[in-house]
Design a protein around this nucleic acid. Structure first.
Length: 556
RNA sequence: GUCCCAGUAGCUCAGUAGGAUAGAGCAACAGUUUCCUAAACUGUAGGUCGGAGGUUCGAAUCCUUUCUGGGACGCCA
């Protein structure tokens, strides 16, 4: 438990004690003590609505209850400077904030580890994200999914979850056949021969490129090859090239996976059969119209789902549910799937399948990534995978820059539609929030460099009484909130909160910077204390930025 | 037609498990540099939280209904 949590814990205990002492409620009637940080500074550092919560139990007016609580409150045990009653019955606590300075040495000590919490209690959690078909370039929507998924994983890990990041490769099924036929067509075309693209072919630039490369390397070697042999080659080759490209693009986007899970492997290792057997044993399968169905409606699905089609092949759901069974068999207690908005309707189906397999439906959580609209010169840009004119993730990063792209995706809550303003993201002006945060880090680096030139060094043991100006206290409070922000973002699966935190911290720092001078030869003791403070900010900023995949530059 | 998501300042978005006078950035307006990076800071102005009912001490938040925008409703993946 860190310092701030400790102080909050003490305060909660004392509130509880006061309520009991005042005889307002018995131990088992006592609601959980809710502490909040008031928006308004004038309302103190913390406030509680305990008096209002107790109104029903104690059958008294909230103000009277609040009076009784305050009268029985022992201020000496909880770093309280003053208590006030306000509004309908809020109790506002003004802290003796000198304890906050203790944060400085503790952050300097923890360094990279600062912000780690035990909110996840080591729970084994698996996050599946991106999982785009290897049939073309990653585009805008995938980029958002990748940024959100990766940030979420970073945050979960920081908050004490045991996280595995996985990518489900759809390397089986129709789309891969279409990939093979598309590559084949582009290959023939590269040789100057007529060949039609398949009906559901992939028209991306990348497939044209593969065709050209094959033509250049092998000439017309494949033209004369038996058709099925040729098909197999194009299939394998297309898959190989697409996967390599996918992995590289994601790596360049600062996204790494622990497991790349092949759909095809489920066909070969019998896991689909096992899953089907389980469903059959549980009595959730029936045959009709020459197909095999999952009776999913009892588990909240709109209609039952086909698992094995008339032609004997599986639907998309079948290997996917086998994959999810495998995840659970591997011991994960919680599964998070990060899906695009177009898969929204797939959720009840998957949850039903999980329940039919004998697990609790709540082990699966789905985070939906809403659509991204790209704006340039105030105009909305169209995207379509079919025509191949989509803006790819690579193009986006090349144009906008990696840090700005990651930050822009991280700063919005994932389940709302997003307008991505290209002009703003590209601009290196004060309009751009990415640089605002990075600039704080660069500024601190600059201060530390100059302090070093003047003979100062950052020490852990400093005279903490030197720290106490209004801006310093604000900054310290922000620093202290970081672990809580991490826990919160993790438990609520809301990575954008970390981006908000980054912004708030930067704001608190810039404000401090303009009010208080750090390096001052006339005041060596205060300088040392402020250097330590500023170094703590630098550490925290870097830690927070890294959670959302944004770099922390020393210079700008 | 059914289901899901969204609707908050001119624009883009927050809003912490129902709390106090709903916040921030940009845009607008007015200021700050003999001083560690002005990619910064300080201040002013800007709102019927889509509309209407309801639940209670108290609602942007929960419930019902309605309007608007987007998405999903395959033996596609």
């Amino acid at each position: 438990m860190n310092l701030v949590e400790q102080v909050q814990q003490n305060l909660k205990e004392e509130i509880k004690a006061a309520v009991l002492k005042a005889g307002l409620a018995s131990e088992d009637q006592l609601p959980e003590v809710i502490l909040e940080i008031p928006k308004e500074k004038a309302h103190g550092d913390y406030s509680t609505n305990m008096a209002m919560q107790l109104a029903r139990v104690a059958k008294k007016a909230p103000r009277m209850i609040a009076d009784a609580i305050v009268a029985n409150f022992d201020s000496t045990k909880a770093s309280i400077e003053k208590i006030e009653l306000a509004g309908p019955g809020f109790i506002n606590f003004y802290m003796d904030n000198s304890y906050l300075t203790e944060l400085i040495p503790s952050i300097l000590e923890e360094e990279d580890r600062y912000g780690e919490t035990n909110a996840g209690k080591g729970q084994k959690i698996q996050v599946e994200f991106v999982s785009a078909n290897p049939t073309g370039d990653l585009h805008l929507g995938h980029a958002r999914g990748a940024a959100v998924g990766d940030s979420l994983c970073n945050i979960l890990a920081k908050a004490g979850f045991d996280v595995s990041r996985e990518y489900y490769i759809n390397d089986a099924g129709n789309q891969i056949n279409n990939l093979a036929l598309s590559v084949e067509a582009r290959y023939f075309q590269a040789l100057g021969m007529e060949k039609e693209m398949p009906e559901d072919g992939y028209h991306g630039e990348d497939i044209i490129q593969i065709g050209k490369e094959l033509a250049a390397e092998y000439g017309d070697k494949f033209v004369h090859m038996p058709e099925d042999e040729r098909f197999n080659f194009f299939r394998e080759h297309g898959l190989k090239v697409e996967m390599a490209k996918l992995k590289k693009d994601l790596h360049d986007f600062r996204v790494e996976f622990d497991v790349w899970y092949s759909e095809t492997s489920l066909y070969h290792n019998g896991k689909i059969d096992t899953a089907l057997k389980t469903l059959r044993d549980n009595g959730h399968i029936y045959e009709e119209d020459g197909a095999t169905w999952l009776r999913s409606t009892p588990f909240g699905d709109d209609k039952d789902r086909v698992l094995i089609k008339q032609d004997g092949s599986y639907t998309y759901l079948t290997p996917d549910l086998a994959y999810h069974k495998d995840k659970l068999d591997r011991g994960f207690e919680k599964l998070i799937n990060v899906w695009g908005a177009d898969h929204h309707g797939y959720i009840p189906r998957m949850k039903a399948a999980i329940e039919a397999l004998g697990y609790k439906r709540d082990v699966l959580e789905v985070e939906i990534i809403q659509l991204v609209h790209l704006f340039k010169n105030g105009e909305k840009m169209k995207m379509s995978k079919r025509t191949g004119k989509a803006v790819t993730m690579r193009e986006l990063v090349e144009e906008v820059g990696l840090d700005a792209t990651r930050y822009f995706f991280a700063m919005r809550s994932a389940d709302t539609h997003m307008d991505f303003d290209l002009d703003l993201a590209v601009s290196e002006s004060n309009d751009n929030p990415v640089y605002y945060a990075q600039y704080a880090h660069a500024r601190i680096s600059s201060i530390l460099r100059q302090a070093a030139e003047q003979g100062f060094s950052v020490e852990k043991e400093v005279d903490l009484k030197q720290v106490g100006s209004e801006k310093e206290v604000d900054l310290l409070k922000k620093l202290g909130e970081f672990p809580q922000a991490v826990s919160d973002a993790a438990l609520k699966r809301t990575p954008h909160r970390i981006a908000n935190y980054v912004f708030d911290l930067a704001s608190a720092f810039h404000s401090f910077y303009n009010a208080d001078k750090v390096v001052d030869k006339e005041q060596p003791e205060r300088t040392k204390a402020r250097l330590a403070l500023v170094k703590a900010v630098k550490i925290t900023m870097k830690n927070a930025l890294s959670l959302i995949g944004v770099s922390a530059p020393e210079k700008m």
